[in-house]
Amino acid sequence: MRKIKESIYKWLFTITAFASLAFLVGIVIVLFKEGIPILKYIDFFPFIFGESWYPTYEPPDYGILPLIAASFWVTIGAMVICVPLGIGTALYLHELAGEKQRAVLKPTVELLAAIPSIVFGFFGMIIVAPFIQRLLNIPTGLCAFTASLVLGIMAIPAVSSIAEDALSFVPRSFKEASFALGANRWQTLTKVVIPAAGSGISTSIILGMSRIVGETMTVLMVSGGAAVIPKSFFSPVRPMTSTIAAEMGEAVMGSAHYNALFAIGLLLFLITLVINLIAEIISRKYRLKLGLNR
């Protein structure tokens, strides 16, 4: 009786563990199956490097360079905001904050991660964009800069919580040894703690980046949505994610437009896959270097 019970539990958990693998494989298969057929309509290079995206016209244009460029610009801009703020938050929480400050700050930062992305989008669209428009006197506040700003704020918790974990993995003995040698707090932080946690911090940056690249709802609402290669940070852009979100609803199933959107999804998947692989490789190396078995 007990044996049967145990084996049932074993199977139940085996199934749940493999379920996510099955979902992943299923999604990848669908992405390839629905995305690859775009190559029947347009060659690989004109698709990636084409500068004109007019999928619903006759004849249609399926060049996604403006969309790739938009994702790239917005991501870079958001990184400039979330990396210093996220890592600064982690350093403060780990090194400087007292018990009381920590007890308030840490949950607050985590709460920022709990805000749904559509709320960020709404906030960006209604408040930030008109403010930026008036402040800088530009034609419209819905632009790459605003998208970067909002996304950068959104990604702070992701970066700070992983960076803080990395800092806490640094053995206490490292710090003690540094202090024993007469180094002050600042020297210990910059010369010992940060280098020791360096790869973990890089991982946090890279994972924050993967979150930004894949973010959809917010960029759909605040980036403006013009499919042109951006000439400046203050021009409206149309990232890959928001293109899929905005157009999938109306694309005729099985059409070239439908395939093109799946191909964009496939490209996004490959980009985030590479980003995550890099993060994984860096964090493995780091664990080995420090001799940690976590």
Partner: peptide, 18 residues
């Protein structure tokens, strides 16, 4: 190509209004 594409009628109306 540089037109701002908005996802809903409300989004167009509120953006024009601002």
């Amino acid at each position: 190509a540089d037109a701002l594409m908005q996802a809903s009628n409300q989004a167009v109306a509120s953006t024009v209004g601002k």
